[in-house]
Design a binder for these strands. Structure first.
Length: 201
DNA sequence: ACGCTGATGAAG
DNA sequence: TTCATCAGCGTT
C-alpha cells in the first residue's frame, strides 16, 4: 500500500505535539507512524494502541514515587523516548509528554507493521506478521529498541514519529489499562477498533 | 495458569 | 546486602 521509499523526506512530529495533556497525546498518536532508521532503510509501523501514565499521583506511573535514575527521562522535556527494561527480558517504549518537570508518558503498546518487515521478522525470529508487533515488548524487539535509545530525541532523525492517518473518534476504543495491578480504574488505554494488530481482545 | 528472567529501588 | 516487585511473552 503506502510507499515509504521517500520516508527520509517525511517530517517528525514537532515537540509541540508532545507538550500537551497526556490523554490528548495518547489518543492523537493512533494512526501515526513510528519509524526507526536502520541500515540505510527504515523500520515503520502504524500506531494502533497506546496507554497513558500521568504524573506522581498515578500509582501505576513509574514516577509515582519521585524521580529515580530509571525514570528521570519522564521528568525531562516532552518528545523524548523513555525506554525501560522489564521482566528480565523485554523493553517498553514510551514517549514523554507535557511540560518539563511533570513526569508523564504514553506507552506504545502495539503497531501495525508497515515497512522493514523483513527486519522485524529477523529480530523477532518469527514469520507471522500478525504477531510481530502486537504488544509493547514485541514491538521493541521488532524495532530492535533497547536501553541505548533511552532518552533519544523523537524530534531527531534516528527514532521518530510522523504524521499518518487521521483516526475518527468513532474508530477509537477506550478501555482500562492492562497488565498493571494498581490504577486499574483509569480508562487510559486507547486503540483502533477492529484493528488486527492490537495486543489483546 | 505458569515459568522465564534480571534490573530496580526500598529496606535493613 | 537482600528481597519483593514488575506497564510482558510464550507455552501449557
Amino acid at each position: 500500500m503506502t510507499n515509504f521509499s521517500a520516508i527520509s523526506k517525511e517530517i517528525p512530529l514537532r515537540r509541540s505535539f508532545y507538550k500537551e495533556p497526556t490523554l490528548t497525546v495518547a489518543k492523537a498518536l493512533l494512526g501515526k507512524y513510528l519509524a526507526r532508521k536502520w541500515k540505510g532503510s527504515y523500520i515503520v509501523g502504524k500506531i494502533v494502541e497506546t496507554e497513558a501514565y500521568i504524573g506522581e499521583d498515578d500509582p501505576a506511573c513509574h514516577a509515582a514515587k519521585g524521580k529515580t535514575p530509571r525514570n528521570e527521562v519522564m521528568f525531562g522535556p516532552p518528545g523524548f523516548a523513555y525506554i525501560y527494561f522489564i521482566y528480565g527480558m523485554y523493553y517498553c517504549l514510551n514517549v514523554v509528554t507535557e511540560s518539563e518537570g511533570f513526569p508523564a508518558a504514553v506507552l506504545i503498546r502495539a503497531v501495525e507493521p508497515t515497512a522493514g518487515i523483513e527486519h522485524m521478522k529477523h529480530f523477532r525470529n518469527m514469520d507471522s506478521i500478525q504477531r510481530l508487533t502486537n504488544g509493547p515488548g514485541k514491538l521493541c524487539q521488532a524495532f530492535n529498541l533497547d536501553r541505548t535509545l533511552n532518552g533519544e530525541d523523537l524530534c531527531g532523525s534516528n527514532l521518530f514519529i510522523m504524521n499518518g492517518e487521521t483516526i475518527d473518534d468513532s474508530q477509537i476504543e477506550r478501555t482500562r489499562r492492562v497488565g498493571i495491578k494498581v490504577g486499574v480504574n483509569h480508562h487510559w488505554r486507547f486503540l483502533i477498533k477492529r484493528n488486527a494488530f492490537v495486543s489483546r481482545l
